[in-house]
Design a protein around this nucleic acid. Structure first.
Length: 218
DNA sequence: GTTGTCAACATGACCA
DNA sequence: TGGTCATGTTGACAAC
């Protein structure tokens, strides 16, 4: 079934198949369009059809390809002689084999990247869930602080506090929490100075160090 | 009949 | 300038 076509027959066939099919680029053409191959005129002959290489030939070529993917001229002739193929067939086989190899590598690389991407997406999902939980925790904490603040303010008559807006009778106590600038832990417990300093995130220092030392010299 | 595989081919780019 | 390579296409063939 997979009988190879003898080289001479193959060459004759090739010459028949290529009849009138070589590039006929005119003088002014910069690019030629790919032309369809002329249908075979000798379709009746069984040997004129394209045949697959035998298993033994393919195995031999695979072994050779495994050793070296490039094909020097001498090696090509030698290989062709070993398995009874035309050197051109060997060259074609190597070209196609390299293309298949590259496709396979690309596919494997794609699968690896896809797998990594999927893992990152899952991780992102977990982190987002974590953020939601933490936000919920923070919200509850702020709520209990707000309630505590109301209790303290109620006990003190609600007018003190010393802050500018604190004495407004119509002002909502919760409004201060909705603002970005107000920090409950600082404003409520009267340790402003120290806590203010303590709440400067570490990266602020590192950033400051970077600014102070723009050339990275320590 | 459709689809996948593969040998063969076409073509442009590159190099010695 | 010829050989080789990468890439894309074609057509034969097998499997379904």
């Amino acid at each position: 079934m997979t009988k190879a076509i003898p080289s001479q027959v193959e060459e004759e066939l090739a010459s028949l198949m290529n009849f009138g099919m070589h590039s006929q680029r005119t003088e002014g053409e910069t690019r030629t369009r790919r032309r369809r191959r002329k249908p075979k005129a000798n379709g009746a002959e069984g040997e004129a059809r394209k045949r697959r290489l035998t298993d033994a030939q393919v195995e031999f070529l695979e072994m050779s390809f495994g050793k070296e993917r490039k094909l020097e001229s001498g090696r090509k002739v030698h290989l062709a002689g070993e398995i009874g193929l035309d050197p051109k067939q060997v060259a074609v086989w190597f070209q196609n084999r390299r293309a298949r190899h590259k496709n396979k590598q690309l596919e494997e690389e794609y699968l690896k990247l896809k797998s990594a991407h999927d893992a990152i997406v899952v991780e992102k999902c977990h982190l987002e869930n974590e953020v939601l939980k933490l936000k919920e925790k923070l919200s509850k904490a702020e709520e209990s602080i707000r309630k505590l603040s109301e209790t303290v303010n109620g006990a003190c008559g609600g007018g003190g506090g010393g802050s500018g807006g604190g004495g407004e009778s119509g002002g909502s106590p919760t409004s201060s929490f909705s603002t970005v600038t107000y920090h409950p832990l600082v404003g409520e417990f009267g340790v402003d100075g120290e806590v203010d300093f303590m709440y400067i995130p570490e990266y602020y220092f590192s950033n400051y160090m970077d600014w102070g030392n723009p050339y990275g010299i320590l």
